[in-house]
Simulated assay, not measured.
Amino acid sequence: MRVRRTRPSLRELFDAHEGRLVHKVDHYFPIYERHLGRFVGRRPRVLEIGVAQGGSLELWHRWFGRGTVTIGVDVEERSTAFRGRRRHIEIGDQGDVAFLRRVAEEHGPFDIVLDDGSHRAEHQVLLLETLWDDLAADGVLIVEDLHTDYWPSYGGGHLRPGTFIERVKPLLDDVNAHNSREESFRPTRFTETLVGIHVYDSVVVLERGDHRPYTTSMAGRPVFDTVNDLPIDDAIPADHLARIARMNRPTRRLRRALRHPGLVVRAVERRAPGRRRDVTR
């Protein structure tokens, strides 16, 4: 009998890591698992801003598995030592739009973009505005170490305009703009492409996808003669009214009775207390 091997978690790989140095905030690991776990085994293209000692590039390859491609960006020329098979290193300033565009054109689209670079507020905002459209259709952008958005030495401060935290707040409106009934508030490019905003201590995760106005569905049969204060014929779509009509056919009632005889008997007893009949006839 073959025993299926369970893939180790990212935290387990980190704890067992003996390669190049990796430095991570401990509570980031569940965040990575939650939002990036679906890419394991899918050969993702990962852009990481900030290479440091090169250990995180090794870790991403081990976790995501064979076929993973990583592109590391750093200002340090020594980072070129980490180039290898399916591991690219680009040297440049993440505050340079032309440089970011060149990286995206040569290596994109990206399934994952991780900003662990300068940690300066203006660079974090620039990354979002410059590379959002270079994410894959279901890509994820993670900006981490956002505690620096509250540090003046990094261009941050509480409620200070221009920080990434302050840039994210209007995105809450953008993702809901399809619901607007005001001409002054209309959908933006983020309304059409942003499907999830997740905010954690020092981390923001943005999920890209095809975001359209919400739709609704109905199932089952109405209990009362109104739905949402409207008559049934006005509140329930024609296709579901037809489905309800099919539910009420004798053969459908019989099947329900055979599946749940106790429920049907109790319903009959409520209609005629003291009387019981065989409802399956």
Results as ranks from 00 to 15, higher is better:
59 L>N: 11
26 D>L: 13
76 E>R: 15
212 R>G: 05
29 F>L: 06
279 V>L: 12
65 G>C: 01
43 R>I: 00
3 V>F: 09
79 S>C: 15
209 G>T: 02
187 P>H: 00
15 D>N: 11
225 D>H: 09
245 A>P: 00
22 V>D: 06
84 G>V: 05
124 Q>P: 08
243 R>G: 09
252 R>S: 04
80 T>L: 15
13 L>F: 07
254 L>W: 13
185 F>H: 15
91 I>Y: 03
24 K>M: 12
226 T>K: 08
201 D>H: 14
165 I>E: 08
245 A>N: 09
132 W>S: 04
102 R>F: 03
272 A>E: 03
198 H>Y: 08
143 V>F: 08
209 G>Y: 00
160 R>M: 00
180 S>V: 03
10 L>H: 03
115 D>C: 03
7 R>S: 05
206 L>A: 00
12 E>A: 15
263 L>Q: 14
250 P>G: 11
133 D>A: 11
235 A>P: 06
39 F>M: 13
249 R>P: 01
30 P>Y: 07
19 G>L: 13
64 F>R: 05
117 G>M: 04
270 R>Y: 09
216 T>Y: 15
229 D>W: 10
132 W>Y: 12
2 R>A: 15
22 V>Q: 01
78 R>Y: 07
218 M>S: 11
35 H>W: 08
105 E>C: 14
23 H>Q: 09
84 G>I: 02
65 G>T: 02
267 A>C: 01
160 R>W: 06
278 D>W: 11
52 A>M: 13
19 G>H: 11
236 I>R: 09
58 E>M: 07
278 D>S: 04
195 V>Q: 11
31 I>Q: 10
14 F>W: 13
115 D>L: 02
213 P>R: 07
109 P>G: 04
151 W>S: 13
117 G>D: 02
226 T>Y: 07
249 R>Y: 06
47 L>A: 09
179 N>S: 15
251 T>M: 08
126 L>V: 00
139 G>V: 01
13 L>T: 06
163 T>K: 05
9 S>I: 06
79 S>M: 13
157 G>C: 02
203 V>D: 03
210 D>R: 10
261 P>C: 12
37 G>T: 12
209 G>Q: 03
268 V>K: 00
113 V>F: 02
169 K>C: 07
182 E>W: 13
167 R>N: 08
148 T>Y: 01
255 R>Q: 11
188 T>P: 14
40 V>L: 04
250 P>M: 10
158 H>M: 00
164 F>H: 10
279 V>I: 12
101 R>N: 15
224 F>Y: 14
182 E>G: 08
213 P>C: 09
219 A>P: 03
